[in-house]
């Protein structure tokens, strides 16, 4: 096969997806620019920076934090993050006594409006099978060594209720404003497989 042919070689999945797109567009069931717009929305707008802003607000506004922990759906909607894959939100607070971590063992459920689409490792057979059974071991693999006195709570996200972790605010960040704090909050910390590090 020449290089030129290679360039046009299509995997079975690429070909099948092109088949679906051409038929569905032809039948008027979806338009090309709609597909483009939804891809762009998840590539550019609906991602973990949304969740990071929720966390930073909770760290800097005690009344908001209280509201967030009592009614995650409403408090997150207040910042404009609503919609598919996050219709009902529960926020889990990590403390010096309790560490929460989220998984979906049966599938890949994840809070889209605040974290975007899940990373491949979250959907992996390895993470799904192991974190419910040996969470401390798995967290250690992620580089998170928890003291024995910290209780680990694994939330297996099996309904349409979606979970997000409110990580602990790292010491030494007292002088930072919400925007600077949001920049520190990683996606992994909001899933519960990492802590937030001071800059």
């Amino acid at each position: 096969m020449t290089h030129d042919h290679d360039h046009h070689h299509k995997s079975p999945a690429t070909l099948r997806t092109r088949v679906l797109e051409s038929l569905l567009v032809e039948k008027g069931l979806v338009s090309t620019d709609t597909i483009d717009a939804v891809v762009r929305a998840y590539e550019q707008d609906i991602g973990p920076l949304n969740g990071a802003r929720v966390v930073a607000r909770a760290w800097t506004d005690p009344a908001y934090k209280k509201h967030l922990l009592e009614d995650g759906t409403a408090a997150i909607a207040e910042l404009g993050y609503t919609g598919r894959g996050g219709a009902e939100m529960v926020v889990l607070e990590n403390t010096s006594q309790v560490h929460n971590v989220v998984v979906c063992t049966l599938c890949s459920c994840y809070p889209w409006p605040v974290l975007g689409l899940p990373p491949p490792w979250y959907k992996s057979y390895e993470y799904r099978s192991r974190v419910v059974r040996e969470p401390r071991t798995v967290l250690r693999e992620f580089g998170l060594e928890l003291p024995a006195k910290v209780e680990v709570r694994v939330w297996d996200s099996n309904s349409e209720v979606r979970y997000m972790v409110l990580p602990q605010r790292p010491p030494g960040t007292e002088g930072l404003d919400a925007e600077a704090l949001a920049a520190l909050v990683s996606r992994d910390a909001m899933i519960g497989v990492a802590n937030v590090q001071a800059p």
């Binding site: 419910v132 059974r133 040996e134 969470p135 401390r136 071991t137 024995a148 006195k149 910290v150 209780e151 680990v152 709570r153 694994v154 939330w155 297996d156 996200s157 099996n158 309904s159 209720v161």
Partner: peptide, 11 residues
């Protein structure tokens, strides 16, 4: 074989 001080939450 359970790890100490952990729990699983399900809906």
């Amino acid at each position: 074989s359970a790890e100490l001080d952990s729990a699983v939450y399900l809906d």
